[in-house]
Amino acid sequence: METEGRVWKFGDHVDTDLIIPARFLNVSDPEELAKSCFIDLRPEFAREVRSGDIAVAGVNFGCGSSREHAPWAMKAAGIAAVVAKSCARIFYRNAFNIGLPVLESEEAADMLQDGGRAAVDIVKGNIRDMDTKRVFFAKPVPEFMMEIIQSGGLLPYIREKQARGV
């Protein structure tokens, strides 16, 4: 599960109001939400983001509101993975649940540059800076959360479990 794309770099403590402000939460369709993703922080984001791009952030990414609209907006906009120094608890859980992988690596978050290119291998947990060729390793995630990501999210994961009768 490798994905390569442009790096969108964000700072520390980017809250879910910045990922998608509440004034756009009167709908819950991910494609609609994607149009307003990061609108107050990076107004060009929704216009310029391409499928497969990677969001890179500092500490406590996704703090604040529990709105799952935030990872949905990012995913529908095209973001294939989040690389952060650390994530807020609810955002981290929401992202895995909807099939948006999060990799935590301080070094990668420091070294990757906005506008550069990076490749992320979700299963191996490594992040490659395509410009400098450096490789970084993310903190391991619990095994069953990897299974959730490999299933594509919590719902397909539960359905698979139900199908297997577990």
Binding site: E68, I90, N97, L154
Partner: peptide, 8 residues
Amino acid sequence: MGSTDVGA
């Protein structure tokens, strides 16, 4: 938690 967790 988020909506997916609560949906489940």
